[in-house]
């Protein structure tokens, strides 16, 4: 059972922990919509230090370019998608 279904509105956790983080800073705190579920994958935040731990659910999340960049010059249809682990996503 996954926490999010496609279409779910989420927000990326606004956080700045040390270490090997695969959540880009430009997406932190930003709202997005879950597109699809990819499965559970090893957590790079642990693997980077040769540590084990539970696998994390991985989702493709879509962000409107205009939500990321207030002065965005392209089309309002433009989106950025990133692959984010469950523990970085909050329900909104």
């Amino acid at each position: 059972m996954t926490r999010f279904e496609p279409g779910a509105k989420v927000r990326v956790r606004e956080d700045c922990p040390p270490g090997h983080i695969r959540t880009p800073v430009y997406l932190r705190g930003k709202p997005g919509v879950v597109q699809r579920y990819f499965g559970a994958f090893g957590n790079p935040e642990r693997l980077a230090y040769n540590l084990t731990g539970p696998k994390k659910d991985l989702y493709k999340v879509r962000f409107r370019a205009a939500d990321l960049w207030p002065d965005y010059q392209g089309s309002q249809k433009d989106v950025i998608e990133a692959d984010l682990y469950d523990h970085w996503l909050e329900t909104i």
Partner: peptide, 28 residues
């Protein structure tokens, strides 16, 4: 500024075409 970058590659997209940028942040 993806459209500006594409333009530098010689690729001009109309505003009617939605641009989708995929940031490969994980195992995909």
């Amino acid at each position: 500024e993806p459209r500006a970058v594409l333009r530098e590659f010689g690729t001009e997209l109309s505003d009617d075409v939605a641009l989708r940028v995929h940031d490969s942040t994980a195992d995909i």
